[in-house]
Design a binder for these strands. Structure first.
Lengths: 263, 263
DNA sequence: CGGGAAGTTGAAGAGCGTCAAAAGTAGTGG
DNA sequence: CCACTACTTTTGACGCTCTTCAACTTCCCG
């Protein structure tokens, strides 16, 4: 098994694999004067399942976490003590193969819940893409809370259902779509998310690197880059400052993403 | 968009897409004298969440379904009226692209639950691989039942969690593994499932076609076939009667599947 | 025993990966 | 404010894995 035999996509530098991070990464702190009732994104999260006058139960078990870009939240293989709500920023979850090949299993944004997929240990690693704040919950306490508030369980099941549906879409993308179709699908997915958060329709700020995009779509950095240039020269999009994507021909992009257009 | 432009893997014959099947497929019948208490696979399913003396509640909402190989249970896009427990046999769930490219999102065996991923309509189509029996539940009744039996909700969440974890593994496979690694992973996954059902360790009966395998792994029929012959000539496995796989060198297979061995 | 589906094998080509280098961008410190 | 450095992105040339297309063989089931 020589190092020369590396194949398939981007490799990342050697990292602790299936091991706990030694110094707890990120900044952790108790939320002193910002209880759940003041949470501006509560309606987006699972916390919407708890009635306003019961929110103190939630605040008791929640701790705020801040994470700088590139910092890890947890690693695959660690025991799952906590679950998290993203309250601002973006994270990525990923899995590694022994030789460093990486698959990003998802990008998490405001309102997303981390820690649904479960086998007793985290099934993937999580790392901040941009500056991120999260609410941390003890899984045990959360489980207790679920017994008292059935709506919380329903909400979690709902989240899991929709994540599962997204995972299936991603399987189609990874298994059967071309590079062009993958990029088109990816951009539209990001755009849709941005719209839900109330952002503009015509453009899109990309926070992740080409390598991240490649590792999410099962491509190499180079192919991602080449596909972008190709879409630019086809007048389907253009790229502004700070890798901002401007949609010139959204209709074509949708056709490409859905597999209708082959060129 | 010419037909000649077909790309990427196996195409399947034109089929009703995003439309309900006209004559309800499969055989449907009320279970007269086989209530849930007599169910031999109850412990494998979500029904294990209901106490033995409460099983009548479950039997009230369950209907037994039989499905011949190749028959469809539901199609992607149909309204999700029902959820299902597999009580015997094997099914496949799949999604199609407009030009017929297909991605199989999973194979369901005894004990598996169908209908977790949800967007109001089925997110994929389901079809019997072998002769199959299922328990059909009205989703509305199931939801009602969940309020009375919180353990049922927990069990569903558990199933969803583990399905999500499997979906992430499949993403790594589809996005980052070679054909050889994909086949190795697939065979070991099947073998593991067979073991849980109490079958032998050394061999494995494959129920699905090469085309199905290809559509599950993001490969073509031909590549699947070629990879099998390659593994045969490497003395890692041999193939007996009825496409029965015999493991000759399981250790190597594990290494290949995990991405340790590149040749 | 025969016909159709499923599986295998071969040859050729395309798409994407690999390797390498240049160009662009951002952060740091004098 | 600009030089210096490190990283990200882009572009080019080439090669390899997997797909495509086609023919042949094997397996089943009536």
């Amino acid at each position: 098994m020589s190092l020369k035999d590396n194949i398939r996509g981007n490799r990342i530098a050697p990292q602790p694999f299936n091991k706990a991070a030694d110094p707890r990464p990120g900044t952790v702190g108790h939320r002193p004067d910002a209880p759940c009732s003041a949470c501006s994104v509560r309606q987006l999260t699972i916390c919407a399942a708890i009635a306003p006058d019961e929110l103190s139960h939630l605040a008791d078990v929640a701790t705020e976490i801040k994470l700088a870009p590139g910092k890890s939240l947890f690693y695959e293989g660690e025991a799952t003590k906590y679950a998290f709500n993203v309250t601002s920023g973006t994270l990525k979850t990923y899995k590694l193969l022994p030789d460093g090949r990486r698959q990003i299993t998802g990008f998490q944004v405001t309102g997303d819940f981390l820690g649904l997929a479960d086998r007793g240990t985290y099934v993937h690693s999580a790392e901040a893409v941009s500056a991120t704040t999260l609410c941390r919950f003890s899984r045990d306490r959360l489980r207790e809370l679920m017994d008292g508030f059935p709506a919380l369980g329903h909400r979690l099941l709902e989240k899991a259902s929709s994540e599962l549906a997204m995972a299936h879409d991603q399987m189609v993308l990874l298994g059967r779509k071309t590079a062009r179709e993958k990029i088109a699908s990816f951009l539209l997915m990001l755009s849709q998310r941005a719209n839900q958060s109330g952002h503009g329709e015509g453009s899109l700020a990309i926070e992740m690197t080409r390598t991240d995009i490649g590792d999410y779509l099962g491509l190499t950095t180079e192919t991602v880059s080449r596909t972008f240039t190709q879409l630019k020269s086809d007048k389907i999009l253009s790229i502004g400052k700070g890798s901002e994507i401007i949609f010139l021909d959204r209709e074509s992009l949708v056709k490409i993403a859905d597999g209708f257009a082959n060129k």
